[in-house]
Design a protein around this nucleic acid. Structure first.
Length: 659
DNA sequence: CTAGGGTTAG
C-alpha cells in the first residue's frame, strides 16, 4: 500500500478503525522517515495517537476526579470536539454511576457535530439512571437534528422503558428498531428480551427469543431467569436443558431460581450437577447454595456450604454477600451463636448483613439484642434500614411482647427512615397486637391499612385468635382469608383449632365439611432429629411403627409423671376432636415432637443439646411440655417449628411463652 | 454495551 492510499483513506475513516491505520502509518514511517514529506500525516497520526491514549486513560478511571483530570487533558489537547472521545467520556461516567446532569450532559452539548453514537451514549446514560423522560427527549432532539439512530440507540431506549416498566412506549421502540436499522443483532435482541421481562411480559420476551435469527447464552439465561422469577420453574428447566452451552451464569440462574421458589433440594441438585460438569461457582452461585442450605435448615448441609465458600475463596469476612447469606443460614439451622460469630467477623457489613442478623436474633427470641443491634445500626453505621430490617425489628418486638415500642417504631418508620409500610409490615403489626391479645386493635389496623390486605395479614390475625381463643374475630379473619387463599389447608386447620378450643363442635364440623368439599388434604405432621452420624429420624403422629416405639412410649409416660409433679396438665382444649378426655390425652402424648423428644432423650447423653425440627406449628400443650421437660431433664431443647425457634432451658422458653 | 445476586410475614 502506498502512502497516497493511506492518506486518502484516512480522511474517510471512522474513529474505531483508527488504531489499525495508525499501525500502518507507523510501518510506513519506519521505511521512509523524511519528516518534510510526512508532516501532515504525522500531525494527523499524532492526533490519533493522543485520542487512543486518552480513551484508554478513560478506561482506567475508577472515580470522578480521575475522569475530570483526563477531561482536562482532552480539552488541553483540543479533543473536546471529538465525538469518539466524548462518547467514551460519557460511557465511563455512566459506568461509574455519575448522574447525567449536569456534567456528562454538558460535555456532550459542547460538541458541535454529534454523531449517533454520542447521542446514544447520552440516552443510555439517562436510561441507566432510570430517567425515561430525559432519554426520550434526547432521542427526540436527535431525530430533529436529522441524525439517524442506530440499533444501539433503541436498545438504550428500551433499557429506559424497561427500568420504569413503560410497556407501550417500549413496544413502539421495538417496532422502530426493525424499521430503521433493518436487522436485529443478538445484542439488541437481548435488550428486547430484557425489556419485556422487566415489564413482566414473559411471553413477549419468549416471542422475541423464538424469532431471533441467532441467540447466545445471554438470551437463554435472560429467559430462564424470567421464568424462574415468575415461578415457572418447569419452563426454566426445560429451556435450560435445551441450552447447548451452559455457562456458570446460566447454572447460577437455575440454582437461585430454585431458591427463589423455595425448592432447596433442586437447587442443591443443580449446584452438584454444575460442579460435576467442571464449572467453578462464583460468589453469586455460592450465595445461592448457602441460601438453599438455609431453607433446608439442616446443619449437615451448612458445613458443606462453608466448605464450598472457603474453597472458592469467598471468606465471609471479606465477602458481604457470602457473610450475609451465612448469617441467615446459621440462624435458620438453629445455630444463632455461629450466626453472631460470622456477623462479628465481617469487615464489611451492609443492610443485608444487619437485617439478617436482626431477623436471626428475633427468630430465636433474643429480642433485646435484636433491638440493640437495630439501634446501633441506625445511630452508628449510617446504613439505611429497609422494609426487611423493620420486619426483623417488629418481629423482635412481637415475640417479646413489646407492643408500645413496636408501635413507636412502626410510626417513625416512614418519617424517620422513609420506609413505606408494606403489607408485610402491617402483618408484623397485626401479629404484634394480636399476640398481645389486642385483637380488636389488630382488626382496626387491617381495616385502616393503606394497601389492600393480603393473606398474610388475615393469617396473622387468625393465628392470634387461636392463641387467644376468640372465635368471633377468627370468623372475620377466616372469611377474608378463605377468599384470598382458598386452597391453603393450614388456614382451615387454624379456624378448626379456634372452634375446638372454644368447645364449638358444630364449628369444627362445618370447617371439616368445607375442607372435604374443597378436596383439600391435611399436611401430615412430621418431626425429625438428626443424629451424630447425620442420619435423620422422622416421627409421625401417633406413629408406633418406630423400632423404638415401646421405649419411647415408656419414656413419655415416665416423663408425664415427673412433669405432673411440676403442675403439668395436658391442655385438652387444643385437641380438635370431640373425644373423651382419655382419648385426647392419648392423642396429645403422641404428638410428633414429643416422640422426637423421647427418642432424643434415649439416644443422646446428658448435657447434650436436643434439636428437634417440625414442619408445622407446635401446639400449646407441646410447648408447655417442652418447657417443663427442659427443667426436669436438665437438657437444653431447641425446637424449630415452621415459624421460629424455641430454646427451652431450665423450664423457660426463649419466646417467653409469647407466641 | 446485553444475562445470574444474599435478608420478608401468618
Amino acid at each position: 500500500m502506498t502512502l497516497a492510499h493511506s492518506r486518502r483513506f484516512s480522511t474517510a475513516l471512522n474513529p474505531i478503525n483508527i488504531s489499525l491505520l495508525s499501525n500502518q502509518l507507523i510501518q510506513l514511517g519506519r521505511i521512509n522517515n523524511n519528516p518534510d514529506t510526512f508532516s501532515e500525516t504525522t500531525h494527523h497520526h499524532n492526533k490519533q495517537l493522543q485520542i487512543s491514549s486518552l480513551t484508554s486513560k478513560l478506561d482506567d478511571c475508577t472515580c470522578l476526579s480521575q475522569i475530570k483530570q483526563v477531561h482536562a487533558h482532552v480539552i488541553r489537547q483540543g479533543h473536546d470536539q471529538s465525538c469518539y472521545v466524548i462518547t467514551k467520556l460519557i460511557r465511563t461516567l455512566t459506568k461509574l454511576g455519575v448522574p447525567m446532569d449536569p456534567y456528562p450532559r454538558r460535555a456532550m452539548e459542547l460538541v458541535r457535530f454529534r454523531n449517533p453514537f454520542l447521542w446514544t451514549a447520552a440516552i443510555r446514560g439517562y436510561a441507566v439512571q432510570g430517567n425515561l423522560s430525559e432519554a426520550v427527549s434526547m432521542y427526540g432532539r436527535m431525530r430533529l437534528e436529522g441524525i439517524t439512530p442506530v440499533s444501539f440507540t433503541f436498545s438504550a431506549l428500551l433499557k429506559a422503558c424497561g427500568s420504569v416498566g413503560d410497556f407501550s412506549l417500549g413496544r413502539q421502540f421495538h417496532a422502530q428498531t426493525f424499521r430503521l436499522s433493518g436487522f436485529c443483532s443478538v445484542y439488541v435482541g437481548n435488550t428486547m428480551i430484557d425489556f419485556y421481562v422487566k415489564c413482566g411480559y414473559t411471553e413477549c420476551a419468549r416471542k422475541v427469543f423464538d424469532e431471533m435469527p441467532e441467540r447466545d447464552v445471554i438470551s437463554w439465561t435472560e429467559l430462564i431467569a424470567a421464568y424462574a422469577r415468575a415461578g415457572v420453574m418447569e419452563s426454566a428447566a426445560e429451556l435450560f436443558e435445551r441450552l447447548p452451552k451452559k455457562d456458570m451464569v446460566a447454572w447460577t440462574a437455575m440454582v437461585t431460581g430454585f431458591v427463589q421458589n423455595a425448592k432447596p433440594q433442586e437447587a442443591l441438585e443443580y449446584f452438584n450437577r454444575m460442579e460435576k460438569s467442571g464449572i467453578q461457582p462464583d460468589e453469586v452461585t455460592v450465595a445461592g447454595f448457602i441460601s438453599a442450605c438455609a431453607q433446608l435448615g439442616a446443619s449437615k448441609h451448612a458445613d458443606r456450604a462453608v466448605e464450598i465458600a472457603l474453597k472458592a475463596g469467598y471468606s465471609p469476612s471479606d465477602h458481604v454477600v457470602i457473610g450475609s447469606a451465612l448469617i441467615d443460614m446459621y440462624s435458620k439451622c438453629g445455630n444463632v451463636e455461629e450466626a453472631v460469630k460470622v456477623f462479628e467477623s465481617m469487615n464489611n457489613k451492609n443492610v443485608f448483613s444487619y437485617s439478617s442478623m436482626i431477623l436471626g436474633l428475633a427468630m430465636h427470641g433474643r429480642a433485646r439484642e435484636a433491638l440493640d443491634l437495630f439501634h446501633y445500626m441506625v445511630t452508628r453505621t449510617g446504613i439505611k434500614p429497609n422494609t426487611v430490617t423493620f420486619v426483623g425489628v417488629l418481629t423482635a418486638c412481637s415475640h417479646a411482647g413489646l407492643v408500645d415500642q413496636g408501635r413507636q417504631i412502626f410510626a417513625s418508620m416512614h418519617e424517620t427512615f422513609g420506609v413505606e409500610p408494606t403489607r408485610d409490615l402491617y402483618t408484623c403489626m397485626v401479629d404484634l397486637l394480636g399476640r398481645a391479645g389486642r385483637l380488636q386493635e389488630a382488626l382496626e389496623v387491617i381495616e385502616t391499612m393503606s394497601v389492600e390486605p393480603h393473606g398474610g395479614v388475615w393469617g396473622a390475625l387468625l393465628g392470634a385468635c387461636r392463641i387467644h381463643k376468640d372465635p368471633d374475630v377468627a370468623e372475620i379473619a377466616a372469611r377474608h382469608l378463605f377468599e384470598i387463599e382458598p386452597d391453603v389447608i393450614g388456614n382451615y386447620i387454624l379456624l378448626c383449632n379456634v372452634y375446638a378450643s372454644a368447645g364449638d363442635w358444630d364449628g369444627v364440623i362445618s370447617v371439616r365439611k368445607l375442607i372435604k368439599e374443597k378436596g383439600l388434604k391435611k399436611t401430615p405432621a412430621v418431626s425429625w432429629v438428626v443424629d451424630d452420624k447425620g442420619q435423620t429420624h422422622k416421627f409421625f403422629p401417633g406413629n408406633m411403627n418406630h423400632p423404638m416405639s415401646d421405649k419411647i412410649q415408656e419414656t413419655l409416660e415416665e416423663l408425664v409423671q415427673r412433669l405432673t409433679v411440676l403442675g403439668y396438665q395436658p391442655d385438652l382444649s387444643t385437641v380438635p376432636y370431640n373425644a373423651s378426655d382419655d382419648e385426647k390425652r392419648s392423642i396429645l402424648i403422641r404428638h410428633t415432637e414429643k416422640l422426637a423428644l423421647a427418642f432424643s432423650l434415649l439416644t443422646t447423653s446428658r448435657g447434650c443439646t436436643i434439636k428437634i425440627m417440625k414442619n408445622l406449628r407446635m401446639c400449646q400443650d407441646c410447648h408447655t411440655f417442652m418447657r417443663l421437660a427442659s427443667e426436669v431433664t436438665g437438657r437444653v431443647i431447641i425446637m424449630r417449628d415452621n415459624m421460629r425457634f424455641h430454646h427451652f432451658r431450665s423450664g423457660d422458653c426463649s419466646c417467653g411463652d409469647f407466641w
